[in-house]
Amino acid sequence: MNIFRLAGDMTHLASVLVLLLKIHTIKSCSGVSLKTQELYALVFATRYLDIFVTYVSFYNTVMKLIFLGSSFSIVWYIRRHRVVRRSYDKDQDTFRHLFLLLPCLVLALVINEKFTFKEVMWTFSIYLEAVAILPQLVLLQRTRNIDNLTGQYVFLLGAYRALYILNWIYRYFTEEHYVHWITWIAGIIQTLLYADFFYYYFQSWKNSVKLELPA
């Protein structure tokens, strides 16, 4: 494992922990898109179908369990927690799951490395992860009220994607036959979705003013 991959995984882990910590300690999920969190839970569930069958490393298994556990806990908090669920911006978080789910499923059925159930589900999770942040970005733009933790959550997620691209470039030059076209193209699209957010995030950081996205 190279340094970019490890740094990417750590920022990914940090993003999830920031969000869980925010929800758990201040008992509020305001500004957090339940739609995005449900999509991530589905991404992990479909990607790690073989978690107990295919063993890569202790590190991989533990990280997979953390991502599965944290994503489902976040969904549980927003939907079921007596206090947290009252802070959910239901009327603002109106993005339709189906608009993202259906195209990803169709694409996974058509473009995949092998037409098997496991492989199609894996490919579906890659496509879905690429666009799962959209409801969150729409919600941020709509409410325009971004608290620090939600801003950091999205920033860390974007950083994780950018680091994964560096990881692929590194692996391309250091390993033989390391070409995962599907992952790479979906990953680049996913990272590009953050470009706009990054721009405003750095602007607000540079000028030390509160992060606000233009309407």
Binding site: V56, N60, E113, W122, Y178
Partner: peptide, 10 residues
């Protein structure tokens, strides 16, 4: 045909 690389990422 080249064997696809292992899925060892998260």
């Amino acid at each position: 045909d080249v064997e696809p690389p292992p899925k060892d990422e998260l």
